[in-house]
Design a protein around this nucleic acid. Structure first.
Length: 807
RNA sequence: GCCCGGAUGGCGGAAUUGGUAGACGCAGCAGACUCAAAAUCUGCCGUUCGCAAGGAUGUGCAGGUUCGAUUCCUGUUCCGGGCACCA
């Protein structure tokens, strides 16, 4: 009798299914344990060996907890809205719902093969109307809320209206600061439209104008991913920044609590670091600089123009040698002198083609343009030239900085490049070669601050500017509000209709707002999504218009862990008793790539739902485990002699590199020494549908030593790299248990590691050995019902103790 | 460019708190069993000098702290992930 994994696994998987052994109840006297995997996007490429790594780890943990007497919630589902399905639809005309269903079937079959202990009766799909009904419902709760900074929580907009009616927004009642101030009387006299516009500035889900990557030729908005150096990936057309009306999540209102919450959860320090850096809290000041108006402008502006800058270093105010505005800054057109007009216009059009990342990344190439205007230092009235440059972003701080070249390296390089004189305010700490951001220096060239240590000067300057009424302390966050609308088809429609330009929530009883059928998936007019093409849907009622944007991928994934608790509820997103019982996710397993996306958004949504009293906890995940990525190794081989000259014509080298990439570890074309012979190489090219003659190959010598190993790379598995490894083959050949054990044996779960099938035989042999402990070819069953000896029990209990300590 | 990780034999990795580097497995080599092969079992297995005993050297690279560093510090190179509309 030998280890027949096929039969064993088939038998037990059937038994689990028939007896629904992993179905879990919301009612149990046992303690609960919630073990969750990040649900997958069901891509057309199917499951690759990287997906199950985390699933296997969490499955082992879930089984362990079950055996330890816990009532374990261990569900699985699909993040099934997304761009790839829509792209595919655009190319083939197949409905995303169909391809998604097909992909899910494949995924499910692959998952079943591995033998997980999921409770499939709780499966969720974000693209299912019964699911996104509640995504829309939660969106409306967020839309109907504002953030009360006095009580540090979200509250219904109705409360805010009451406050406005009684005190206006001049009294500090915890509202965020806005430019517009009004009294109760003024509020009451505002038109309905004015009131709604004002409320939009407070809502936690709000519409505003923001910049997007606009491609005129394709008539659509593009993801950063789809733009390469200002050119669209598809078609190679020009892409520019364009302002469009967008929906946003006001996640910045939660910045402080998202930071504080990190203290309460067991995430890795690296993960916490990433989130902290992303939120990017900085303490500083906003300072107002007057602008010395050019003679040509004085007739137009009586009151004088001012620039608000944000700085973390008010102590360096006497070292300000120039100002830099973001090119998009609204003041630019007001202050530019006629002499600089054309240069500024030209520069702005250049910046429009640049992404934020490009703008910040290329420090070697310094660009900018003088506006011709000057600001005045509030302390000594020194004239400070005002420039614009791409390294200042409109979205951060006030979109304007005071540049201190002796203390900031980017400012320094800018000053050097444009020959702006540099004031040294840090004495010998500045060497003229590079900036020094020290806080240790005693100030020089700083008027009344001369000799004062910089650390003390910060407080002194802050006090001064507050007394002079030209500035105040300000905490800033690098994080921006999260864009929440997409000009796409395959996402949740917004439950919003417009009447006379005012956004209204759809009645709860009319949810879900279902995705209508479309004839094609091409963009609508003026860069709107495909939904804008369906007039009868947009204007379902006279005088009303539907929102034609859809929600982004992270909408559905921001709350799915709550739906698993009560997946079939059609009167609530999840029953309060169920969320109270299951509470936080005890262990959440997934990749680090979600650090600043999904993991922040879902934390925010949880906090909103908590604030509004719908759930009883405000952090979704108690403990997070980040599994490492399984990369695929690619090997590059070449002839021992000079490969670029001898075997490959230069125009084919790219193509051949792609071919070489597919020589992976354990590949039968490569012998055990990693050597590749002429014959095996030709056979390989043949199998690839390529011909030797395509590559202008000259064989230098024949035999075993023809090729040498050139280089090796590990990269993310992806269809386009020819390096996706499917678990199916492994399971067919060795069985699910070998596969599961092998993935665990590759190395620590948290670590990234290359996929490599060399070791799999060893693991399989181990399982066979284990089998033989119980069955023997000749003797049959080796086990019996005799009591274990004390020595045997000791070994058993040591093992149990060790496992208990390691989890 | 910025933020976060990582680098240890032919390969994946271990070394839990600064204390014998290389556990365990894979691959390889040798042997046992067999007519033979597979399977299984046993032994060897970082590099280098040496018949051996034994010595030297060795955790990406360059320094430093320490009686002692894979581990701590400084610098540096390379690789992976993220950088806001991929999910």
């Amino acid at each position: 009798m030998e280890y027949n994994y096929r039969e064993i696994e088939k038998k037990w998987q059937k038994s689990w299914k028939d007896s629904q052994i992993y179905k879990v109840s919301n009612h149990s006297s046992k303690p609960k344990c919630y073990v969750l995997d990040m649900f997958p996007y069901p891509s057309g490429a199917g499951l690759h060996v990287g997906h199950p790594l985390g699933y296997i780890a969490s499955d082992i943990y879930a089984r362990y907890k079950r055996l330890n007497g816990y009532n374990v919630l261990h569900p699985m589902g699909y993040d099934s809205f997304g761009l790839p399905a829509e792209q595919y639809a655009l190319e083939t005309g197949q409905h995303p719902a169909e391809t998604t269903q097909k992909n899910i079937t494949t995924f499910r079959q692959q998952l079943d093969n591995i033998g997980f202990s999921y409770d499939w009766s709780r499966e969720v799909r974000t693209s299912d109307p019964q699911y996104y009904k509640w995504t829309q419902w939660i969106f409306l709760q967020i839309f109907n809320s504002w953030y009360d900074h006095s009580n540090n929580k979200a509250r219904p907009v109705a409360d805010l209206i009451e406050i406005f009616e009684q005190t206006g927004n001049t009294a500090e009642n915890g509202q965020r600061k806005t430019e517009r101030k009004f009294s109760a009387d003024e509020w009451n006299l505002f038109s309905h439209k004015e009131k709604q516009d004002i409320l939009m500035e407070y809502r936690l889900a709000y519409a505003a104008y923001g910049e997007v990557n606009w491609c005129e030729a394709l008539g659509t908005v593009l993801a950063n991913d789809e733009v390469i150096n200002g050119i669209s990936e598809r078609g190679g057309h020009l892409v520019v920044k364009k302002k469009m009306r967008q929906w946003y999540m006001r996640i910045t209102d939660y910045a402080e609590r998202l930071l504080e919450g990190l203290e309460k959860v067991a995430f890795s320090d690296a993960m916490k670091d990433m989130q902290r850096n992303w939120i990017g809290r900085s303490e500083g000041a906003e300072i107002e600089f007057k602008i010395e108006e050019p003679a040509e402008h004085t007739a137009l502006q009586k009151d004088g123009l001012k620039i608000q800058v944000y700085t973390t270093r008010p102590d360096t105010i006497f070292g300000v040698d120039f100002m830099v505005l973001a090119p998009e800054h609204s003041l630019v057109t007001n202050i530019v002198t006629s002499g600089q007009q054309s240069a500024i216009v030209e520069y702005i059009s250049y910046v429009k083609s640049r992404s934020d990342r490009e703008r910040l990344a290329e420090v070697k190439q310094i660009t900018g343009c003088f506006t011709g205007a000057y600001a005045l230092n509030p302390f000594n009235n020194k004239k400070i030239p005002i420039w614009i440059s791409e390294y200042v972003l409109a979205g951060y701080g006030t979109g304007a900085i005071m540049a201190v070249p002796c203390g900031d390296q980017r400012d320094f390089l800018f000053a050097k490049h444009f020959n702006i004189p540099i004031t040294n305010i840090i004495g010998h700490y500045y060497n003229g070669e590079e900036a020094n951001p020290t806080k240790e220096a005693a100030l020089t060239n700083s008027d009344f601050l001369n000799g004062v240590p910089m650390k003390d000067a910060i407080g002194i300057v802050l006090k001064q500017i507050e007394e002079m009424g030209i500035g105040c302390r300000k905490v800033n966050y690098k994080m921006r509000d999260a864009g929440f609308s997409r000009q796409r088809y395959w996402g949740e429609p917004f439950p919003i209709v417009y009447q006379d330009g005012i956004a209204h929530p759809v009645n709860e009883s009319d949810l879900p707002v279902e995705l209508p059928h479309v004839e094609h998936y091409r963009p609508g007019p003026d860069g709107q999504g495909p939904l804008a093409n369906i007039d009868e849907w947009v204007k379902a009622q006279s005088g009303w218009q539907r929102e034609t944007n859809t929600m982004p991928g992270y909408a559905g994934s921001s709350w799915y862990f709550l739906r698993y608790m009560d997946p079939d509820n059609d009167t609530e997103f999840s029953d309060r008793k169920a969320t109270n019982y299951w509470n936080q996710v005890d262990v959440y397993v997934g990749g680090t790539e979600h650090a600043v996306g999904h993991l922040l958004y879902s934390r925010m949504w949880t906090k909103v739902l908590f604030d509004l009293g719908y759930i009883g906890f405000d952090e979704p995940f108690k403990r997070l485990v980040n599994q490492g990525m399984i990369t695929a190794k690619s090997y590059f081989f070449a002839l021992e002699s000079d490969y670029t000259e001898q075997i490959i014509s230069h125009n084919k080298i790219e193509n051949l590199n792609t071919a070489f990439r597919r020589f992976k570890n354990g590949h039968s074309y490569v012998d055990s020494n990693g050597k590749l012979t002429k014959n095996s190489f030709i056979k390989y090219l043949g199998d690839m549908g390529l011909d030797e003659n395509d590559f202008n190959i000259k064989w230098i010598k024949e035999g075993e030593e023809d090729f040498i190993f050139l280089k090796e790379e590990s990269e993310k598995m992806s269809k386009s790299k020819f390096n996706v490894e499917s678990p199916d083959d492994v399971i067919t050949k060795y069985g699910a248990d070998t596969f599961r054990m092998y993935e665990m044996f590759l190395g620590p779960v948290e670590q990234s590691k290359p996929w490599d099938t060399k070791g799999i035989e060893g693991v399989h042999r181990f399982l066979k050995k284990l089998w033989r402990l119980f069955f023997d070819d000749t003797k049959g069953e080796l086990w019996n019902d005799e009591k274990a000896t004390p020595a045997e029990l000791k070994i058993l209990h040591n093992a149990i103790k060790k496992i208990g300590e390691d989890t």
